[in-house]
């Protein structure tokens, strides 16, 4: 019955909501900046089950057949052309070319990661 509790039972809006929305928008913008700043990568790294499997040059076209997936490098872009997992997220994800970007197929524990040589890659790639 205090005055404090009134705010959320009166209206679906409150002036203070702006604080929450701003905090999260800033958070989203920061993470978007981290994701989208990135130059052209030069190496395609393939990780299976957290272990580094192969490295390929991004500039040469290539088809890599794995146990559950097929990874295609074409015109400086990488995409997955075949997957035997049920959800097919990796097939639907757009081709990647920038450093720090990746395609992953979680059911098969496959991560295709593009590395470059900037400092930003070191930050993201450091955990790999």
């Amino acid at each position: 019955m205090t005055k404090k509790e009134k705010n959320f039972c009166k209206k679906p809006f409150s002036v203070w909501d702006i604080v929450i929305y701003i905090v999260f928008t800033v958070f989203v913008i920061i993470s978007v900046i981290f994701v989208f700043i990135g130059e052209k990568g030069n190496t395609v790294e393939i990780y299976l089950d957290g272990k580094h499997l192969y490295s390929f040059e991004l500039s040469t076209d290539r088809v890599i057949e794995l146990e559950h997936n097929t990874v295609v490098i074409e015109n400086g872009e990488v995409y997955i052309s075949y997957a035997d997992c049920p959800n097919k997220i990796c097939l639907n994800s757009p081709p990647v070319s920038k450093a720090g970007r990746s395609i992953s197929c979680l059911p098969n524990k496959l991560i295709v990661y593009i590395s470059g040589d900037s400092d930003y890659d070191a930050v993201i790639g450091g955990g790999l």
Partner: peptide, 26 residues
């Protein structure tokens, strides 16, 4: 997954989560 790769999905998932959150809040 012992990797930083899922962090790349952070902006999408937070903003989409906020939209659904506002909806469920209403």
């Amino acid at each position: 997954m012992q990797s930083a790769v899922p962090l790349l999905y952070l902006p999408y998932l937070i903003s989409l989560g906020m939209l659904t959150g506002v909806f469920t809040g209403f």
